[in-house]
Design a protein around this nucleic acid. Structure first.
Lengths: 200, 200, 200, 200
DNA sequence: TATGAATGAGGATTCATTCAT
DNA sequence: AATGAATGAATCCTCATTCAT
């Protein structure tokens, strides 16, 4: 019954990915146990390892899936669009991701904090190339007087840090804000920041 | 000869703190082992535990020491100074800390990422109170027209995220920047960001 | 096939209980190691902990099982029976237990010697109540002239000490008696003791 | 200053013996730690080992001192005295020892429970010889009609178990008796037991 | 005589992974 | 596809003992 088997397979693999994300994003790779993941996935530990050959494989799969989507918002920044709006749009997409996918953000943060042992290549390769390409665009925008002078690479770092902060430091943000939802007010604030920084 | 005894004690305790900072800041509490800390401290594992009763005690001591200094730069923001310069000064102090004490920053980031199990109280207590106090000052500055309108709490979040990013995401930053030293250019960039955001 | 699984489980749990009894009754809780128990059970140490969550759990399970049976012989003393025979019967049942379950007796003795940290409640609760109930019966027997006057609680202590001695001090008893089986002659002796003490 | 040194030595050795008795009698040899003994003695652990070469040495010294006094009450049973009074006297001396030296009794009980690894020789040698000698005396008393027939060795066992019980099972005895002092009533009871057993 | 410092040999427990079914 | 059983390799921690002073 390959069809039904495949369906179960997909369901369980998805459950494992979700569980792994939940666990790994909080405790990091070494701080997480397969028991935690198995519990969260509602599977037995040996059954977990029927779908993924090892703890590492689950973690790596999560990282791979993450990277697929992680760069997408930056890719979408359109060379031909209105510069200020394009940059603001990127920042807003990143903020939305922090709101909707905070665990992915924390998984990424964890990996970077530990020295990015598994994704250094991606950072120095694909990511660096993408950033440099977009930096070139931004420089052109500056030269054309469409936005105020700004270090384009640090601008991108700023977008990352300002938006991801609301996912990665969520506990701290909420401890300080109390019941207020952080994202409601964050969006306005970040738009202020970038508009004043960039609008000529 | 208690003095010599104390000297050894101080030396070893300091070595353990340094080693613990190195290890815990990278791997987090659960991801670190006493073996790693002992190796880094140049001590045997039992000897380590002669100075600190447990792995947890080392980690907790590190967190405690960290928190002592962590809030200091914000405390230093002077109500009576020039608003823009005071806020910029705070941001610059934080950036300097990221440059000089990146491991402390990563230790803190690790703790927060894991849900801040040991310092939630400090966050919701001391830190929140301090932030609210400084937010009041900032609001007054805004009311007096000394700085442009801005959400004061999110302004503080922005200072944190923009500066700590250079410590916490150091690997990523360097992967993208290559040989350029991040902090040389970061300072100018951050001054641009905050000046444009705040200067009336 | 849950039945086969259960069979292995039961077999191993039983083996662990037997092994734990053997080891704990001789060395006490703190003096015993999981290695000893695992060896005696023919299991690896981690496999041991697959069936019981901790060393303490094994010990506690043994104590619990012991207490279930420990009071039974006293319960069986029948208010309506012949007083002398009832008391003698109780003593004989206790002596038989010392012969057939000496390790249980020593486990109990060990626990009491260490201050009964885990079963103080049972002693001061269930056991005390049972002793007091039976003491009331014995007092009635005395009042009715069925047995000679005797302190009923100390009588019960005497039955315990005289019989358990042959299990708890077995090594000493055998060192003195040489090849003679202690229990052969003990029974007669104890019957003499109690008959002369009680027969009006 | 040898004299003062000796004084300190004696004081500390005595303190260690007292502390060791306290600790070993409760937890047994393997269940006790040198830290516990050192704490109880008010000495540092290395200083402890200045006076006794090892943990074992302390325990062995305690056992040796114990054995010196342990057999004394039986030795005192006088062949030429009145049989019933002599045997009762012995029982009373043993009961007094249980009251005044319960820790010694428990130390002995612990050692026996563990199979008497260090004093098997004494049991099978000195003790056995003494018991046999006294058994011969008792047999003579029986033959002379001075006391009722009774198994002499088991009689001695009975004296041991009935009296030591109040030291070794102290916790249980007090749990059942509540506030009543066990020894007040025990003496009368034991006299009843032995008088009725022996008086012709 | 005394103690701070250090350590090797355990000892309880965890955990990723394998095996058998 | 699933799971109960089993294990070797850690991992935190304890403890008797030694060393240096």
């Amino acid at each position: 019954m390959p069809k039904s088997a495949t369906r179960i397979q997909q369901k369980n693999q998805a459950a494992i990915m979700t569980a792994g994300l939940e666990v790994f994003s909080q405790f990091g790779f070494r701080g997480s146990t397969l028991d935690q993941v198995a519990d969260a996935a509602g599977l037995s530990k040996p059954n977990l390892l029927y779908y993924f050959p090892s703890k590492d494989a689950i973690y790596t799969a999560l990282l791979a899936r993450l990277l697929e989507n992680w760069l997408e918002p930056l890719h979408q920044m359109n060379d031909a669009g209105d510069p200020v709006e394009e940059i603001l749009g990127y920042a807003n997409r990143k903020l939305t991701m922090s709101r909707d996918f905070p665990r992915e953000s924390r998984l990424f943060a964890n990996e970077i904090l530990q020295g990015a042992p598994r994704i250094k290549d991606v950072l120095a390769g694909e990511l660096r190339a993408l950033v440099e390409a977009k930096a070139t665009v931004i420089k052109r925008w500056i030269a054309e007087g469409k936005i105020k002078p700004v270090d384009p690479v640090h601008l991108i770092f700023s977008i990352w840090s300002l938006t991801q902060h609301y996912a990665d430091f969520d506990v701290q943000v909420r401890a300080i804000l109390g019941d207020t939802d952080p994202f409601d007010t964050a969006e306005t604030h970040l738009n202020d920041v970038f508009r004043r920084l960039l609008t000529p």
